[in-house]
Computed example of a mutant assay.
Amino acid sequence: MAKSENKTKPEPVDPAAMIASVEHPQRRADAEVLLPLFTRITGWPAQMWGPAIVGFGRYHYKYDSGREGDFMVTGFSPRKSYTSVYILPGYRDLSEPLSRLGKVKHGKSCLNINKLADIDMDVLEEMVRDGVAYMKANYTTAAR
């Protein structure tokens, strides 16, 4: 199978400017908290991935099918209805920290948070740190 790149790619947009443009006041305020939090946790600068995802780091993946590409290691996106936090990789059992996190909905690699006040920020930091450590141990990662 031919190499197939991820459709979501790094964009030359300032993440702080994107956050400042978020219309929903709660999503904007939460993103203003998450930006320095993720920067501190990861040690990597923020970079936009597509028009709405603030990502940190980069890793290269290659599936058995031959599909490969680059994607962010972790990040977040202030959506209209909630803020998504991306904890990669998904598909691991995160039931224990999820039980302590607070009020969230989640998919395989993302947490959907209505507002940061609904969750335990220490547990969120623990989960992001764990995800970044896993990615560094299992993939080639870089700041950009």
Rank of each mutant, 00 (worst) to 15 (best):
A31F: 04
E32H: 04
V33S: 10
L34T: 05
L35P: 05
P36Q: 04
L37S: 11
L37E: 06
F38D: 02
F38G: 00
R40L: 08
T42R: 01
G43V: 06
G43L: 01
W44N: 10
W44S: 08
P45G: 08
P45C: 06
P45E: 13
A46E: 03
Q47D: 06
W49T: 02
W49Q: 00
G50E: 03
G50Q: 02
P51I: 12
P51Q: 13
A52I: 12
A52D: 11
A52L: 14
I53L: 14
V54M: 05
G55M: 03
G57N: 03
G57P: 08
G57T: 03
G57F: 02
R58D: 02
R58Y: 07
Y59A: 02
Y59Q: 05
Y61D: 01
Y61Q: 01
Y61W: 09
K62R: 15
Y63M: 14
Y63S: 15
D64P: 03
D64W: 10
S65I: 10
G66F: 10
R67A: 15
E68S: 13
E68Y: 12
G69D: 09
D70C: 09
D70S: 13
F71C: 10
F71N: 04
M72D: 00
M72C: 08
M72E: 01
V73E: 00
F76I: 04
S77M: 01
S77N: 05
P78N: 04
R79T: 03
K80I: 05
K80P: 11
Y82H: 15
Y82I: 06
T83Y: 05
S84D: 01
S84V: 08
S84N: 08
V85G: 00
V85F: 00
Y86Q: 05
Y86L: 09
I87T: 02
L88H: 11
P89L: 11
G90P: 07
Y91P: 01
R92F: 15
L94C: 12
E96V: 15
E96M: 08
P97L: 06
L98N: 10
S99Q: 08
R100I: 07
L101V: 04
L101W: 05
L101C: 00
K103N: 12
K103D: 12
K103P: 08
K103G: 07
K103M: 05
H106N: 15
G107K: 10
G107Q: 03
K108N: 10
C110W: 09
C110S: 07
C110I: 10
L111R: 11
L111M: 02
L111N: 00
N112D: 12
N112I: 00
N114C: 09
N114G: 11
